[in-house]
Amino acid sequence: MKNSRRKFIKFAGMAALGWSICPSLAGARSGPRQSADRLRAERWAMVIDSEKLNDELMDKCIEACHKLHNVPDIPNDQNIKWIWKEPFYNLFHDQSHGYLKDKKSIPFLSLCNHCDNPPCVRVCPTQATFSRDDGIVLMDFHRCIGCRFCMAGCPYGSRSFNYYNPRNFLDDDDLVHDYPTREMGVVEKCEFCAHLLDQGEMPACVEASEGAILFGDLNDPNSDVRKVLQERYSLVRKPKLGTDPQVYYLI
C-alpha cells in the first residue's frame, strides 16, 4: 500500500514536473535529468554497530563528516554538530536504568535520525526542511529563514543554528570545494550525505567507520541493514514519540 502510493505520487510528480518546471526553458529540449550513477533506495536507513565502534573510529567518522561538509569548530555553546559523541545514558535515558554501569558512560554516535515522521518538517514554515522520496530529511539552506522552530521541534537535539558566520571559524585554504559552507542565520544538520548518494557514493561516516556503520535500503529484504536488524537486537531513540527514527543502534 505504502509503496504503491509512493510510486503513484512519484509518477504524478514527474508528470507535473514535465510542464511546471523550467518555464524559461519551455520549448527547448535541454533540461534536467537524473544521474545514472546515483544510488537509489525506497527508504535509506543507518545501522550503527556499538560492538564494532570504538572511540578512535568515532573520531574518524566525525572528522570525515565535518571535513567534507565544511562544518566549523566553534568553541562555545553556539557550535555546530552534524555527528558527535554522546554517552549512552544521554541518548537512551528512557531505555536505561541505574545498573547499566558499563553502558551508561560509553559514548555513542549521535546524528539526525531522518525520521519517517519528522516533526522538523511538519513545523517548518517555508518547507526549507523536507523529506525526500527516499526518506532523507534534507535542508534547503537557500530557503531557511532561521526561525529555529525545527530546533524546538526536533526531539533529538540534532539541529544546529549558525549563530556566527561559519566562515569566521573555517580556514579559507582548507575548505572542501565540492560542498558549500553555510551562511549566518540558517539551520543545518546531517543529510545522510545526500549529495554523495546522488553521485553514487556512500555517506562519509559509513566509509570512515570500517564496517561499523551500515547504510542501505530498509525496504529491500536483501539489504545489509535489513538482515542485520533481523538478526541482532537494536534500539532506536525515543520510539514512543512516534517520529519513527531511521538510525538503528545494534547493542
Binding site: 524559461s24 527547448a28 534536467p32 534547503d140
Partner: peptide
C-alpha cells in the same frame, strides 16, 4: 536567463531529485 537558470537548478538539484542538465 543565467540567474533564472541557476535559481531553477538549485530547486531541481536540492529539492526535486535531479542531478544533471542535458544541453541540447
Amino acid at each position: 536567463e543565467h540567474m533564472n537558470m541557476l535559481d531553477e537548478w538549485r530547486d531541481l538539484y536540492v529539492r526535486e531529485g535531479y542531478q544533471e542538465y542535458w544541453s541540447e
